[in-house]
Design a protein around this nucleic acid. Structure first.
Lengths: 341, 341
DNA sequence: TTGGCGTGAAGAATCGATTCTTCAGTCTGT
DNA sequence: ACAGACTGAAGAATCGATTCTTCACGCCAA
């Protein structure tokens, strides 16, 4: 009961005076065992506190693959982040379980990872930062790796992500008329989704002959953010404002209301990354929806293939969906069609 | 290369024309193998794309314990949540790895968990909601379980948590003079930390002969939150305001500033749950710091003990630290000492 | 009485990698 | 020239559970 070593099937067999086979069959409901014996074995197992070792149980049969799962801590957290991670984690977990694999959490710490043998067959890294040392350490072990979002300094690593380039571009297509001036409020492009969102906005500008002016802020504290946003609104009056994420979008909406600016009457407001909060604000905010469910599933599929030695796609983009809301209703007359790519 | 089945050590041995032992020793750098053979085996292994099976590798030796890890999705997300989960996850992961265990993510979905055999020896459930069905399903498998935060409907389940009762109480001791009137802004007590924070504030009130008035809001959207907070500020003028979490605290600070109320001059503002953001606002906000690092480590320790069949404490409370900041400086003359319990 | 069949349960192989033990062959020193 | 030491590598046990195969025993019918 208070023993140190774990109780194994051998202990149960010895205590019940039967063979290993009988214990296994009794507990799993297989084989030809009279009810009386079955009950007795179960009782002995309970008394000893026996629980089958999950590892050994999985070794035979189809086998359980172990996939390392790492999330880079975010300096700036938003509802988007939480919603995205939660959804991603749940769907990735589910996909893995369905394919006889398990997601094993690993600490996001290069030192720690380096210092021990990692009990995994491959790894998924979510939101790596530029030139990420953690990814580097994993790579050095030789295990297959896939990232959700690219490591901007290692573009050749296999990765999966929402298609922020086209997402941002289509978002503007739907919500902003060609030729108008858009002020884009973004964070420093340390992660690929930021970089890609900016590229998407610039592509839209080129294609439609519009102008996008970039403003980078650091969004750590709401108290520091508000004055920064005010300064931008003062200096750069625009027809529409494109916020990178929900945190920036809601902060902007607050500032605009405080200034008595009508949204969308005087200025339209759109946000690249959707989050549940954007559907709750007043007015609700138009955004492009990511698909963490698909991203998670695809990442798991790819890493399982890589572990099995199959070739995998170098990158996968998941299309985003524009969600037109009150802050920037869909245009009735669509602007020029974007070329396929 | 594009093969379906995974390459095993046997395949390498056959291809290299040596024994299993030689392959294993060559790749792990052990045994007495001449450099030439070692290199040749390594090359063959590389060509075949061999990677040792993590499961089998861990079966021998100390063995790898698998611990299920589940996080209940939060309806309302705050910086606290993200910071807390991230820190908890990293430290729990690290603690597990250090003790030859691995944290395996499981989906927070009762249906899914019920439908398959779970490849884990025990489980940690973070932030269970009242009468949680997920916990129920896990419990039914017979595996040991520990929750971070109590399931309010299953108080007898082993659990670990920050000591919100004493945390809130000591926070008020340090920042609010006895006899003053405190307005507490909180969420509906669906999780134990909310419940406990309220109890702590009430205990402080009783002990010091002060009054705490409770105001429950739903914090989903910032746009809906502000009017609700205004209504409370209008209806219940207080000497100090106690916010449950960073989201409520920063929203309150915004409202107070908008109303031209001086903090801490006219009203002091304190927050039960600390988060990095509270140290960045202007003024910075006094709060009680949780210790997700310790909570994570302790939860892992406990579940490992439970898996090994050792008896574990039914509950563990981690003391919180009051962080005095500008919004409510520490009182020079401390109020009555709280009795030990 | 004995062949055959059904029952209950044990034996042994298996999963993949590691590690302890053994062993054949070569080299060295006396 | 031969015992003993050393080298390189293979054999076999092990981890814990599952599962395929075998086997002893009892009973019934021919």
């Amino acid at each position: 009961m208070t023993a140190g070593r774990r109780v194994t099937i051998k202990d149960v067999a010895a205590a019940a005076g039967v063979s290993l086979t009988t214990v296994s069959d009794s507990l799993t409901g297989k084989g030809r065992i009279p009810d009386e014996t079955r009950a007795r074995v179960k009782q002995v197992a309970d008394e000893l506190g026996y629980r089958p070792n999950a590892l050994a149980q999985q070794l035979r049969g189809p086998g359980l693959g172990l996939i390392g799962f790492l999330i880079a801590p975010a300096a700036e957290a938003t509802m988007t982040t939480v919603w995205f991670w939660n959804t991603l984690m749940n769907h990735a977990t589910e996909a893995a379980l369905g394919r006889q694999h398990a997601l094993v959490l690993l600490p996001y710490d290069a030192e720690l990872l380096r210092s021990r043998r990692l009990p995994v067959d491959g790894a998924i890294v979510v939101d790596p930062k530029r030139g990420d040392e953690v990814t580097e350490v994993l790579r050095a072990t030789g295990m297959p790796i896939i990232t959700v979002g690219r490591d901007l300094d290692h573009p050749s690593e296999p990765w999966v992500d929402d298609d922020y380039v086209n997402g941002a571009s289509e978002l503007l297509d739907r919500a902003v008329a060609a030729g108008e001036h858009v002020a884009m409020i973004t964070l420093a492009p340390t992660k690929s989704y930021i970089h890609d969102s900016i590229v998407g906005a610039q592509q839209w500008a080129e294609r439609t002959g519009s102008r996008v002016s970039l403003h980078t802020v650091s969004a750590f504290s709401a108290e520091q953010l508000d004055p920064a946003l005010d300064a931008i609104l003062d200096a750069d009056p625009a027809d529409a404002i494109l916020a990178l994420n929900d945190r920036l979008a809601t902060a902007l909406l607050r500032r605009l209301r405080a200034r008595g600016v009508n949204v969308p009457g005087e200025v339209r407001l759109v946000c690249v990354c959707d989050s549940p909060e954007l559907g709750q604000s007043r007015p609700t905010i138009t955004a492009a929806r990511q698909h963490p469910e698909d991203v998670g599933r695809i990442a798991v599929s790819a890493i399982i293939d890589a572990i099995a030695g199959r070739d995998i796609a170098e990158s996968t983009l998941v299309p985003m969906d524009v969600m037109p809301r009150t802050s920037a209703p869909a245009l009735s007359a669509p602007t020029k069609r974007r070329p396929k790519r």
